[in-house]
Amino acid sequence: MAPQYIANHNLPLLLERLRRYAELHGPVRGEDGVVRFAAIAPGTLPDLSALRTLLPPKKYLLHPQETILNYTAAAGYQLQAEDVRSLILFGLHPCDLAGINYLDRVFLGDAPDPLYAARRATLTLIGISCTPDEFCSCHILPSPLNALSDLFLCSVDEGLIVTSGSPRGDELLDGVKDLLEEWEGAVPEDSRRFFGHAEAEQVRPEPDATLPEWQEFASHCLGCGACSLCCPTCYCFDVLEFCGLDSCSAERVRQWDNCLFKSHAEVAGGTNFRKERAERFLYRYRHKYRGFGPLQGVPSCVGCGRCRVVCPAGLDLRPLAERLEGRPL
């Protein structure tokens, strides 16, 4: 069967049609000039020319701060119940799809995280191809190439080739089939991106902690944590508890944490397992390029380039990573 194609001039119709299925969110440029994932207002188009949003779509699955448990003296701790609304995320680049795929592996493993699982089950992902810039490294990392989505749109002249990646995608395609045409031109070889190649996951020896580069990075890093905040695969969270004013109820909250913060490795009594900024840099490096726990050997960096764009000190781990990982990134 020939690939399905939707002409650019039909895009507004496609969006209106998708809106019948669920609330529609995508990259939207705000009045402040910032591109962020937000509701696409009826009659408007998402900003598909923007290369990256300020925050990645992880905010839909892990809220910056959220209640996870409620306590009352009568019922003890109870899981937080939430009315989860169906949501379509439109215009996700392969790196952001890969970010969500990675979070799925962490939060939907053997024992799924209840809140994440509930939100993920109602989320429809519609990806779109893009052209990387000098900050991106998706064109070399394996995960964006393999990223899963419900629908994927590949830009070609005058339109988008549409492929389905799931039963949900099939359902959506069926609902918009009158807008689709058969594409008779050539399909770009890698329909997920314009260039790149896949590499197998592998376990590498520990990075050398004595390299002077760690100190070098540490001496320039401001410790602001922006790189982690805007990373699609940084999911560290802190857990806090707030006692109710009646003193017999309580709320347990989790909020985004940051491995570049000094408090990240501090335990009761004041011992800190990563006192030095260089140690915290190494920690971040390990997570991004080597993976933790069950995901050892699976790099979590998806190459979106946000960390490089937002760093106020202009730090870039990539040259060091290329050396330590023995491949261009």
Partner: peptide
């Protein structure tokens, strides 16, 4: 000993190298 906030390998605080103190 590490800061094991969640106990189930999700909160990202307790890695030793690439192993998680709370699950590995």
């Amino acid at each position: 000993e590490r800061r094991m906030k969640c106990g189930v390998g999700r909160c990202g605080h307790c890695a030793v190298g690439t192993r998680l103190c709370c699950v590995d």
